[in-house]
Simulated assay, not measured.
Amino acid sequence: MHESLEVIVRTISAVFMLFFLTKILGKRQVSQLSFFEYITGITIGNLAAYVSLDTDKTWHLGLIALIVWGAFSLGIEYLQIKSKKARDFIDFKSTVLIRNGKILEDNLKKEKLTTDELLEELRKKDVFKVADVEFAIMESDGAVNVLLTRENQPLTPKHLGIKVAPERETQAVIMDGKILDEPLDTINLSRSWLQDQLEKQNLTVENVFLGQVDSYGELTVDLYADSVQVQQPQDKPQLYALLKKCEADLELFSLSTQNKEAKQLYGQCSEQMQRLLQRLKPFIQS
Rank of each mutant, 00 (worst) to 15 (best):
G75V: 11
L160C: 14
M175V: 05
L280I: 12
F128G: 02
Q153D: 10
G75I: 11
Q195D: 09
D126R: 14
T149V: 09
V144E: 00
E182C: 04
A86D: 02
E271I: 06
N145T: 14
L33F: 00
T114W: 08
Q232N: 08
V228P: 05
K263H: 08
L280Y: 06
V221W: 00
E261N: 13
T95C: 12
V130R: 09
L250A: 12
F283M: 06
R123V: 02
K110T: 14
E271G: 15
V96M: 13
E167Q: 13
K178R: 13
L189Y: 05
E121V: 01
E121Y: 03
Q285L: 15
E139I: 03
G62Q: 02
E117D: 14
T257Q: 03
F135D: 00
R279D: 07
F89W: 10
A86V: 15
I42C: 05
Q278D: 13
Y50C: 10
L74S: 07
G217V: 04
G161K: 12
E169F: 05
G161Y: 06
K236F: 14
L47A: 09
Q201E: 08
K125F: 00
D222W: 02
Q278Y: 06
L252T: 07
I12R: 08
E199V: 02
S94D: 12
A14P: 08
K109E: 13
K158A: 15
A14Q: 11
V213W: 01
M175Y: 00
Q285G: 06
G62I: 05
D222I: 11
E182A: 15
N188G: 06
L25K: 12
Q80T: 15
T156G: 10
L223T: 04
T40C: 09
H60I: 02
L160T: 08
E251W: 00
D185P: 00
M1H: 11
Q272H: 13
Q231G: 12
N259M: 00
S83N: 14
D185S: 15
V144Q: 03
L194M: 05
G75P: 07
F36T: 11
E169D: 10
S94V: 05
R28P: 06
K245C: 08
Q32T: 12
E120W: 06
R150M: 08
K57P: 01
E218P: 03
L184W: 03
Q195F: 09
K27A: 12
Q212W: 00
D196L: 04
K82L: 06
I284R: 04
L53R: 06
V68C: 09
P154T: 09
F209G: 00
K129W: 00
E218T: 15
Q229I: 14
M17T: 14
I179H: 04
E139R: 09
A136F: 06
R168S: 08
N107Q: 03
V208R: 01
K85H: 07
A241S: 11
S83V: 09
N145A: 04
Q29Y: 01
D141L: 02
V205I: 13
N152W: 01
T55G: 14
G217R: 01
S31Q: 13
K245W: 03
L61Q: 12
S13E: 09
H60G: 03
A71W: 02
F89K: 14
K112C: 13
L97E: 08
S227D: 15
L219Y: 11
E182F: 02
Q232V: 13
Q264D: 07
L155Q: 12
V208I: 10
Q171T: 10
